[in-house]
Computed example of a mutant assay.
Amino acid sequence: MHFLTLAAVKISRTPEDKELDNQIAEALKELEIQKQIETKNFMLDLAIGRCQNLQSSFSRAVNDGISELMYPYCASLEDPEYLEFDNRTERLREEYEAAVDCIRLPQGTIVEQYGDPLWGRFVVRDGKVFQRDAGPLHHEKRTKKAKRMVALPNYPRKKLYKSFEEYAEERCGFSFDEKHQGYGYYYNPNAMWDWYSIGGRWPELFLVKDTCTEYSIGERSWYNSDKKTEAPEGYMWVCAARKKDIAWKTMQEWINQKATEYFHKLEQMFLAGKADPDFHGEVVPAGVLHWGELVYRKNSTLQDFLEEYGISKNWKYPIRPHDIVDVDQWLSRGDSVLDTESGNYTSVDWRSCIDKYIDDMGEDTVLVAVDYHI
């Protein structure tokens, strides 16, 4: 799943590097010319996105700052400083001592039904072997192949493998760790992502004046690469900027204005009983569907709609991040905190947490929209 995290980085004034700016601009021109020829080249799209994201010294500093912030939370991290060992030896030994349904193949080899080479294509049922997903109906069936096999229910694993070590290494794929004297693997207990992108699905999170010089447009996701969100006159949408440059009030007013216009459009379609020709959805008795999601509900009010798709008047900062990350912490919606007086854990008021977090940061702090997957 993809989530939006609000990243806060401290970036000092970045000196201009005109030579590097020009090199990236030239590379971008060449890629765009090549794109006119190879219109469906996905790798070209990625390269263009990277170049666009690194066109200024500020955006390059943002890129480096986010890389440093996100590093400790990588799921595939190999840095020993952040890793812990998950010792599976005891569990593996319990499995080795247990019995499992096995199948004797026609040539005489005995294998586990969910191991190599069957991997569950043939299973034991009522003392017989059945082939799964067989025939046009994809049912379990006593096919000719299945009848040539012999079911061995509750067969001791000890008879299958010469030793516990063979089971752990060859059947389960674990290596023996000398340091911990056991079988297992290293993992990052703080892992939050296996892939991320600056901007990504949220390349237009912050509104800044079009005279702003310190911002980043990030890299757009493939599915919104051609999407361009309208901005009020004199402003532009970006995915990274300093707190002091973000037009929070204008953002809130503009988002609610557009949400109000969208509500009335949906309401008119519902009352008319049919969707507009360019609308990717349909009118149903319960309301209006858009891409399969019920976005307008029968008898809903504008206030109801704004609470769900607009920005509440109670919000100080008009953004909806799932997480917050900075040099000290990673906070997520749904986290709980310890009440030192009662000793109980209570859920975080996420909206208040966001507002207070941004309130407490310095005006020069850079806020970045990061699209991450886990």
Results as ranks from 00 to 15, higher is better:
V123M: 14
G108F: 05
G234Q: 09
M149C: 03
N299D: 15
A241E: 07
Q181D: 04
E90K: 13
V129D: 01
G49A: 12
Y161R: 03
P189C: 06
L83V: 03
K258Y: 02
G173I: 14
D278Y: 12
I319P: 07
E170V: 04
S336P: 00
M1K: 05
F279H: 11
K29G: 09
W119S: 07
C172S: 12
N87D: 15
N314M: 01
A259W: 05
L302G: 08
K179A: 11
A25Y: 09
K274T: 13
G184A: 08
R121S: 14
K274C: 08
H138W: 10
F305W: 03
L338N: 05
L31H: 08
K162Y: 01
G362T: 06
Q113F: 07
P232A: 05
H2F: 15
Y187P: 02
A75W: 00
A146Y: 10
A8K: 14
T5E: 00
D101E: 06
W222G: 07
A98F: 04
E19N: 09
D371G: 11
F122G: 00
D45Q: 04
P285Y: 14
E253S: 13
I11K: 05
V100G: 04
L266N: 05
K141H: 14
Q303K: 13
W202V: 15
M1T: 14
K313R: 06
E78G: 06
S59P: 10
S347I: 00
F206D: 01
Y155Q: 06
L294K: 03
C212A: 12
P156Q: 08
M149I: 07
M192G: 01
G135I: 03
P277V: 15
W291G: 05
S59C: 03
I48N: 12
D45H: 09
A272G: 13
F206Y: 15
F130I: 12
G362K: 07
G127A: 09
D278C: 00
Q131K: 10
H280R: 12
T301K: 10
S225L: 09
F122I: 05
S332C: 14
K144V: 11
A272Y: 01
T260I: 04
A146R: 06
V129A: 07
E293S: 11
A8S: 15
V283T: 12
G199E: 02
N190F: 08
G127E: 11
E32N: 12
I319V: 15
R88F: 08
Q303G: 03
N87T: 07
S12E: 13
R157K: 15
V368Q: 10
M251N: 05
S59W: 04
N22Y: 13
T143C: 02
I66H: 04
Q113H: 13
L46K: 13
Q181W: 03
E308P: 00
W254D: 02
F164G: 10
L54H: 10
I324M: 10
H280D: 09
D323H: 13
V295S: 00
K158F: 04
I374T: 01
S312L: 09
R201T: 04
Q113E: 15
S59I: 03
W350M: 00
